[in-house]
């Protein structure tokens, strides 16, 4: 009896000593913790797409609260608040098919966690372009549709001004002569003025670089360009939420060259 037990123990010991074959790559689907020898079976059909939302002024990363920037008319300005919504973010393939990767993304520069989102259910990377809506289009921009989102209630756009939600709140100080008096404040608030749809779509070609099953896409906002190209807009302490003509100018500038997309490399 004892002899058999001994033999059994010995063989199992022997077995556990031989190298376990399996997938040894931690990022693979079928990563095997016990495997010490890779057998080429790793299954990589899930990719992580990291979407980064960045903000810059004259191509440099935005520095918040610093009254050192100069606009097109040599007025000093700062950015104190910048919150915005990018919606309907889609990836497209050559064959015309597309994948919705994020339906509503609220970005607040004061909250790091809103500046990056990881999409993990991506099974192939044959995407050649990305598209998104800046703001919320008519079908989304409905009063009380987003009561449980983090941008409620501060993004609420009053019913009597059109209802729904802001697209963007860009606020800060401006001052012509820093040595003279206190700065003034501008509130560049875009949204559905009078119920009209001032949201716009952007599409960019992309080339995805994959490292360890991760690929990064950066969606950058060049803040300065909201105020120029083609329409020059000056800072003012007047609200613009009821000003359709300024909303359409901002839309025109926004569509032109405010956004850009790049991937890592």
């Amino acid at each position: 009896m004892d002899k058999y037990i001994l033999i059994f123990l010995c063989t199992s010991l022997l077995f556990s000593c031989t190298k376990n074959e399996g997938c040894t790559d931690p990022v693979a689907n079928n990563f095997d913790v016990n495997a010490s020898l890779d057998d080429g079976s790793c299954d990589y059909n899930n990719y992580n797409i990291n979407l980064h939302f960045t903000q810059s002024i004259e191509s440099n990363p935005l520095i918040k609260d610093s009254l050192t920037y100069l606009n097109h008319s040599n007025i000093n300005y700062s950015v104190q608040t910048l919150r915005y919504i990018i919606s309907e973010i889609k990836l497209h393939k050559e064959d015309g098919t597309s994948k919705l990767i994020d339906s509503v993304q609220f970005i607040n520069i004061a909250d790091e966690s809103t500046k990056k989102v990881t999409i993990s259910d991506v099974t192939d990377l044959e995407y050649t372009s990305i598209s998104f809506t800046v703001g919320l289009n008519d079908s989304y921009n409905v009063t009380n549709l987003f009561l449980n989102e983090s941008f409620f209630p501060s993004f609420t756009w009053p019913e009597m001004l059109g209802g729904g939600y802001h697209y963007m709140q860009l606020e800060g100080e401006f001052q012509a002569d820093l040595a003279n008096g206190n700065p003034s404040f501008y509130n560049t608030h875009t949204g559905p003025t009078s119920g009209a749809d001032f949201s716009f779509n952007k599409t960019f070609p992309i080339e995805l670089y994959v490292i360890n099953n991760q690929t990064d896409i950066y969606i950058d906002m060049e803040i300065t360009n909201w105020y120029k190209n083609p329409e020059l807009i000056n800072y003012s302490s007047d609200g613009i939420m009821g000003n359709s003509s300024l909303q359409s100018k901002l839309k025109e500038n926004g569509e032109n060259d405010v956004f850009s997309v790049y991937s890592s490399e």
């Binding site: 608040t81 606020e171 008096g181 003034s184 501008y186 509130n187 302490s237």
Partner: peptide, 8 residues
């Protein structure tokens, strides 16, 4: 900055 009418 929402107190945009300061001074005015």
């Amino acid at each position: 900055p929402l107190m945009k009418k300061i001074g005015i």
